[in-house]
Design a protein around this nucleic acid. Structure first.
Length: 721
DNA sequence: AGCACGCCGACT
DNA sequence: GTCGGCGTGCTC
């Protein structure tokens, strides 16, 4: 025994500490440690775990009475050091983490540590102390006054900077509804350009003036530099920090610490920012709440939008979800009970564009007609009428945006002699032909090779690209529109740091006439001079097996339409072209009328009949294995192991397990994947079932590891099925 | 997850 | 004779 241990024996306290440990480690809940002094819950500590030292969070000072201690006191290890100098993580933060861990079926420690800045988990007490000292010094010399002083200055009526833009009637109405308050979350339903941001900013201003902190969430921060700039400009006297995965580890720690210390007034962040500890939180905003980016797609698959609503409820602060095309879940929540909704949210409508600029006229270009007109000839890359319309824009010095949601030159290469296709050796997917760097690339595992000059199977020199991606579209447009300057923005162009900014700047400067891009251009960017937006191949979503495909596509097309004609002087003749084989499809018909409400109503009816969200809750049990049999074998065993539990749930709850099936892309990087859908009419019943099943599955997984199971996980409220 | 221990092949 | 492959097992 060391002297330290001896001292601990005198008056040691038992602490519950959570550490980073995934479920299959078997270390689920709270671990017990000894401490010389009782530490408040939320304190960060370094504790021994096996042979290493890890960072943990104190969860409870004493284990709940009545619980049988897992270990005798003499077998417990002692806390090594306390990461003091930081305030303890607030109780609201711990409650949010505990809720998220329970709801998304993850370990408490895993969830807690995962949402801390990665850097913080690495540092020991001395290193953290150094960082904090440096931060203190930076704060003392920063141009922004300490928060208390800033609040005082503002309260004293010190108004500086540009005058605020005048509010439209509908903005004023929305703001007064917000002011009237109530405990319900708000759904701000406003078309693109209706001034949702101004409503956020005004409401945020009120919170800031009241000395509160604001959490403003956006789907992807690099897609919304304009919002960031606007927030910074509006709140020039305040301390604004951003939180997203693009920051360096040191920046992320720094901004997070400022939030926790209460020095940051406004946090602008992506989904991970929903967990930022904010001691004086006064408002949460979730912009573009329908965006799928809010759902974490690996590890703990949480929905930051849903957690934001829960957090607002927990901390009794208002939450505002904003979108032109709300998720059907939110839409349903914002429909009054009398109209078949849940009535949980209050909807604020802002249907009109500021400045009177109309949304572009939607033209559905029926490909069946075009085909007839070109019968017998090689069909042009784009329909003639669309090409002509773009050419007209070029002539007038206006810009066009052509959307195609597929990167690369062609999705697959094909040998017409022997039938060879450019499959990926590691995945059940085609390798995409990228002409720019002459490679065949797998978009799933990243496997890349120089494109072969001849067919690798039969030596045929004549291998052909099949289908079309943005690279090829760019090439075809350049050929079809001589003299036009054609540019492209997609993930390939953007890979280089600063390339996106550079390309956007050249579009804004009018150096590009026709911009080709994937969905990333449809999001967030304001293009003042674009008068034509075209969706070239939008039909796939109409027949996708994923029940959310239509919802996503409608949102994307509407958002894309919003890129056109944002200046009133060009809005009058702006157009959105949709090149389709199914012009009479209800989705396009609703789009043409900009009638989201009727689209949503129709979709909700279909969901209700099919027993899908928001009328039922889903969870997906996913498995990865060395073979498809291993993955499916586990899922089947898992399903039969919980038959009793299923039988115990009330019949009326409609709990149902579907058969195990391969995932849409069955094999990725030589790992086979399968999934099993679980459906339930009542969310609470599904929750109870999942947490009980989890324990059964843990044991089941252990047995299946030998037969080739690699990983498994539950995805609660899956986005894609 | 880490990080150990543990038992079988090609190297100084 | 060792270095090292990754299978199995444990961490309050």
């Amino acid at each position: 025994m060391t002297p330290a241990d001896l001292r601990l024996d005198e008056a040691a306290v038992r602490l519950g500490v959570v550490v980073e440990a995934p479920q299959h480690s078997g270390l689920l809940g709270v671990l017990d440690y000894l401490s010389a002094t009782p530490l408040p819950p939320g304190t960060l500590v370094r504790v021994p775990l096996g042979r290493r030292v890890v960072t943990g969070v104190v969860w409870a000072v004493l284990p709940p009475s009545g619980e049988v201690p897992v270990r005798a006191t003499e077998d417990l290890k002692a806390v090594i050091e306390v990461l003091d100098g930081l305030p303890a993580l607030p109780s609201a933060w711990r409650q949010l983490v505990a809720f998220a861990a329970a709801y998304y079926q993850r370990g408490l420690g895993e969830m807690a540590l995962m949402v801390l800045p990665p850097e913080l988990r690495q540092l020991d007490a001395v290193q953290l102390q150094r960082r904090l000292k440096r931060l203190d010094k930076a704060l003392a010399t920063a141009p922004v006054a300490a928060p208390v002083a800033t609040v005082a200055a503002t309260a004293a009526g010190d108004s500086t900077g540009a005058p605020l833009p005048e509010l439209s009637a509908q903005q004023a109405l929305a703001l007064s509804a917000l002011a009237a308050g109530g405990a319900r979350p708000f759904l701000l339903w406003g078309s693109t350009g209706s001034g949702k941001t101004e409503v956020y900013l005004r409401r945020a201003q009120e919170a800031l003036d009241a000395g509160q902190q604001v959490l403003m969430m956006v789907p992807e921060i690099n897609l919304t530099p304009q919002l960031e700039a606007r927030v910074a400009e509006r709140f020039a006297g305040r301390r604004i920090v951003s939180l997203h995965s693009g920051l360096t580890p040191a920046q992320r720690l720094r901004n997070w610490v400022m939030a926790l210390q209460g020095h940051a007034d406004l946090v602008l962040g992506t989904r991970l920012s929903v967990f930022t500890p904010l001691p004086r939180l006064g408002l949460i905003v979730v912009d573009e709440e329908h965006d799928p980016s809010y759902k974490q797609q690996d590890g703990a698959r949480y929905s930051a939008r849903d957690l934001a609503v829960y957090r607002a409820h927990l901390e009794k602060v208002p939450v505002m979800l904003g979108s032109a095309t709300p998720s059907l879940e939110s839409w349903h929540n914002a429909l009054p009970v009398a109209e078949g909704g849940s009535g949980r949210y209050l909807r604020l409508d802002m249907p009109e564009r500021i400045g009177g600029g109309d949304m572009p006229r939607v033209r559905l270009l029926d490909q069946n007609h075009v085909l007839k007109a070109t019968m017998g000839q090689e069909p042009p890359p784009l329909s003639r009428p669309l090409l002509d319309a773009i050419a007209q824009r070029v002539e007038r010095g206006e810009q066009s945006l052509v959307l195609l949601n597929r990167r690369g030159y062609a999705p697959v290469l094909h040998c017409s002699d022997c039938g060879w296709k450019s499959g990926c050796p590691h995945c059940s997917a085609w390798r995409v032909f990228h002409k720019a760097d002459r490679t065949l690339r797998c978009h799933h595992c990243g496997f890349s090779e120089r494109v072969p000059r001849a067919c690798p199977d039969c030596g045929n020199q004549d291998i052909q690209p099949v289908g079309r991606g943005t690279e090829r579209l760019e090439e075809q447009l350049a050929a079809a529109l001589p003299g036009a300057r054609v540019g492209r923005i997609d993930a390939d162009v953007t890979k280089l740091k600063g390339a996106l900014e550079a390309q956007l700047a050249s579009v804004h400067a009018g150096e590009v006439d026709v911009l080709v891009g994937t969905q990333m251009v449809a999001k967030g960017h304001d293009f003042r001079r674009i008068t034509l937006v075209a969706a070239v191949n939008p039909d796939a979503a109409l027949f996708a097996s994923d029940f959310r495909a239509a919802e996503r596509q409608f949102a994307l097309l509407l958002q894309a339409a919003g890129r056109a004609g944002r200046d009133a002087d060009v809005a009058g003749h702006s157009e959105m072209w949709v090149q389709t084989w199914h012009a009479t499809h209800p989705l396009y018909q609703a789009l043409q009328r900009y009638d989201f409400a009727s689209f949503a109503t129709r979709q909700l009816q279909e969901r209700q009949m099919a027993g899908l969200p928001p009328y039922a809750s889903l969870a997906m049990l996913r498995a990865e294995g060395k073979t498809q049999e291993a993955a499916q074998g586990f899922l089947e065993a898992a399903a039969s192991a919980v038959q009793d539990l299923v039988a115990q749930t009330p019949e009326a709850a409609g709990l149902m397990l579907y058969p195990a099936v391969p995932t849409p892309v069955q094999r990725v990087a030589n790992v086979e994947r399968a999934q099993l859908m679980i459906e339930c009419g009542q969310r609470a019943v599904l929750q109870r079932f999942l947490s009980e099943a989890q324990a059964v599955w843990l044991a089941q997984a252990q047995q299946h590891r030998r037969s080739g199971l690699i990983r498994w996980a539950v995805d609660v409220d899956p986005l894609a099925i």
